[in-house]
Design a protein around this nucleic acid. Structure first.
Lengths: 235, 235
DNA sequence: GCAAAAGTGTTCAATGTACACCCATGC
DNA sequence: GCATGGGTGTACATTGAACACTTTTGC
């Protein structure tokens, strides 16, 4: 039971706002754009897939809470994390008022250290293809769709796609990740021209161990600064 | 006293998160870009100027709460309103954990019906020039600065500046409002070319009652659709 | 007639887009 | 030697930026 000073009236409520953060975590795995989902262990939506999330602690910054959720699930740091939107439809969460501050994050698949990854049996944390999502809890479908839209907007401004790639990558791999996120094909020559003329990649003296074809030059990224003040790299 | 199920532990807390919304309300008045501030009647920061805001009701959508705050202060509808960012630094609010979901709004100065406007005495609600802000409560300076930045970004994508103008306006007035928001001078010919080639304005057969100079053609706006899914016009 | 704001086009640079062939390697 | 993905350049269209003079009105 809470007493809450709400809108200039002291009201008595059996529940109060709860505030969570949900983190939409993207990666590229097996040439697919994937999002991390957890299977809910409790009601509501017990057994349903959902975006990883959790309550924000009373003395915890929002960014810190999102980072904590991310670490709990993926054990990664040094990732791109950006506050997305705060969803507060009073009906979004059954029988309770839960406002969620959504974030989205991009991680490299080669940084992943997911304990559940070793097991081949079905676990409660899994990657799902973004274009083959299962039925999701709450408004999480809407949140993921909005994340995708935002990620595409960001991609046009700053090279966050690098976050999805290994530290050394070929231009074809880079282009492929752009195509996966943007959902359309890009022209190879124009893409390479654009990437090389912006000084965000550094040419290496290494080549991919060719998988039965001509080896491709490897690049690493450099000079990454974000146009957005909202997104950050956390190290 | 609340019991809160927080991060998988049932914890006992003497306080809980509180969630407010703050609305940064812009207008153009006397050829200046202005923001609406209220003087705080209570501690903390009693007497200090602050962005209008209030607690979100338990069964109230975030957008609705922002709209309510806006109506309480300005009595306008049919405005541009967009969720800005959620600020949740645990130290932003003294002695309490208050997370605020900030919005920004643009209103026409000729739509204004502010009760306090008739009075010439100092009231607790006033317009302030954005480049001459008084000392503000909480992190409200940061919120206003971020609103300005976002408004500039929006302006490049969609014609929200129309929200700040009377229903009939001259192109010079429109250009002036862009210059006020962007904080820089624009080229007259390029500006008019761009505005006229996008079909967002409609030429009228009326002219400004010339104030001792050549009368200028009036325009109204048309075909307003937003590029952003986040911003909305509320009618 | 003059002061003051309204109105009007062209040139140039930069950027984005469309498009097709040779190259290096593994097998 | 051939199949496969790696790598490269040019022509054109679109867009944004710089720039100055004539027109209309009130006084």
């Amino acid at each position: 039971m809470c007493f809450l000073y709400n809108n200039n009236m002291l009201i008595k409520e059996t529940k109060t706002h709860e505030v969570t953060t949900d983190v939409v975590i993207f990666t590229i795995k097996n040439s697919k754009l994937m999002v991390l989902l957890v299977r809910r262990a409790n009601e509501p939506f017990k057994g349903r897939w959902a975006i990883p999330g959790g309550f924000i602690r009373l003395s915890e910054d929002l960014d810190a809470a999102a980072l904590r959720i991310l670490k709990e699930k993926t054990n990664v740091q040094n990732i791109y994390l950006e506050q997305l939107y705060t969803f507060g439809d009073p009906l979004r969460y059954p029988n309770s008022r839960v406002i969620t501050c959504a974030y989205f994050a991009l991680i490299r698949s080669d940084d992943l250290e997911l304990s559940f990854e070793d097991s081949t049996q079905i676990t409660d944390v899994q990657w799902h293809k973004v274009n083959q999502l299962p039925s999701l809890a709450f408004d999480h479908k809407e949140i993921i769709e909005y994340s995708l839209k935002r990620m595409r907007e960001r991609l046009e401004l700053c090279p966050i796609a690098f976050q999805l790639l290994p530290k050394k990558f070929t231009l074809t791999e880079l282009q492929y990740s752009y195509e996966l996120i943007m959902g359309k094909k890009l022209d190879k020559r124009n893409f390479r021209k654009k990437v090389l003329s912006s000084n965000i990649v550094k040419e290496l003296d290494e080549f991919s161990k060719s998988t039965s074809k001509r080896p491709a030059r490897l690049y690493s990224f450099d000079n990454i600064t974000l146009n957005s003040k909202r997104g950050h790299f956390f190290s």
